[in-house]
């Protein structure tokens, strides 16, 4: 369409630049803070230009951590976060694709019930039923373990629902052709459905990886042993020091490192991620 409205175009760019400043500013401040020495905060204002202690701060936080907070070095916490994010993402994809397959390609008694049992948990985050879930995990002896960190978060409906939606769009005839070609259900699943789901799996992986990495309350509760701390919850321990200002330069270095992996994943896989996100909710 021909649009020759210079004013409107200028306004458009202005709005977007303001928007970007709004979203980027907090992170800019954090990055700046993470490059300064701890004395730079004593005059009572965050500096606005980078300092010289970036390497010092980052290597210290990665290898040693913040001594006063009882949190381990960030390197360990990042590893824990990675384990948690990967287990949750892969685990969810695995159990979800199987149950979506069952729901779409079979008819059996209690099918609708099974679907609703899964679906009802779609938006029921762990925060709401935190006490009793915590108790179940404690009773099962899963506190301070990777199993306890991940398994309770593995069942959620989002992934099942995405796969269901996707399977419904796969032409009926594909499965019929495969049946005539002599493929049983699991063979059809492996040879046809799984390869066709590749894009969806990748997109979902991005979303679920972020979900797993960003968990906060759950690791806070199920880990008391600091060797299982994850980075997002660990930062809070660092920032939460009694009776004194936190060591802002180190806390912000940790914040930057905690944001980095999921942001890299999102930007690196932007197309897939946007597609997966939008389709999972359609």
């Amino acid at each position: 369409m021909v649009q020759n409205n210079t004013w409107l175009n200028a306004l458009t760019h202005l709005i977007l630049i303001l928007g970007i400043v709004f979203v980027a500013f907090p992170v800019y401040i954090a990055i700046i803070a993470s490059t300064r020495g701890s004395f730079d905060f004593l005059q009572g204002l965050v500096p606005l230009l980078p300092g010289t202690e970036a390497i010092e701060n980052y290597s210290r936080i990665l290898n040693a951590g913040v001594s006063t907070s009882g949190a381990p070095p960030l390197g360990l916490m990042m590893t824990n976060s990675l384990v948690m994010a990967l287990s949750i993402a892969l685990g969810k994809i695995f159990i979800s694709i199987l149950s979506a397959f069952a729901i779409v390609y079979f008819r059996f008694p209690f099918r609708t019930l099974a679907f609703w049992m899964i679906f009802i948990t779609l938006m029921l985050p762990v925060e709401v039923r935190i006490m009793p879930t915590f108790k179940v995990v404690a009773d099962l002896g899963l506190l301070n373990s990777y199993a306890g960190l991940t398994i309770p978060l593995i069942a959620s409906a989002t992934a099942t629902f995405l796969f269901r939606q996707f399977f419904l769009t796969v032409p009926e005839e594909l499965m019929e052709a495969a049946r005539i070609d002599g493929a049983g259900p699991m063979k059809f699943f492996r040879d046809i459905l799984l390869p066709l789901s590749r894009t969806n799996i990748a997109a979902l992986f991005v979303i679920l990886f972020i979900y797993g990495w960003n968990q906060y309350l759950w690791p806070l509760l199920v880990t008391t042993d600091s060797s299982y701390y994850t980075v997002v919850m660990g930062i809070k321990r660092m920032a939460d020091v009694a009776d004194s200002e936190p060591q802002w330069n180190l806390v912000m270095a940790a914040v930057v490192l905690a944001m980095l992996p999921p942001i890299v994943v999102v930007i690196g896989m932007q197309k897939l991620f946007v597609k997966g996100l939008v389709e999972s909710e359609k």
Partner: peptide, 20 residues
């Protein structure tokens, strides 16, 4: 008898070729 064992072959309107 299962479709696979009926010794028939079918051509569909949308062809149903395996896309991958």
């Amino acid at each position: 008898v299962d479709p696979a064992n009926r010794d028939i072959a079918m051509v569909f309107q949308n062809y149903a070729l395996y896309p991958h």
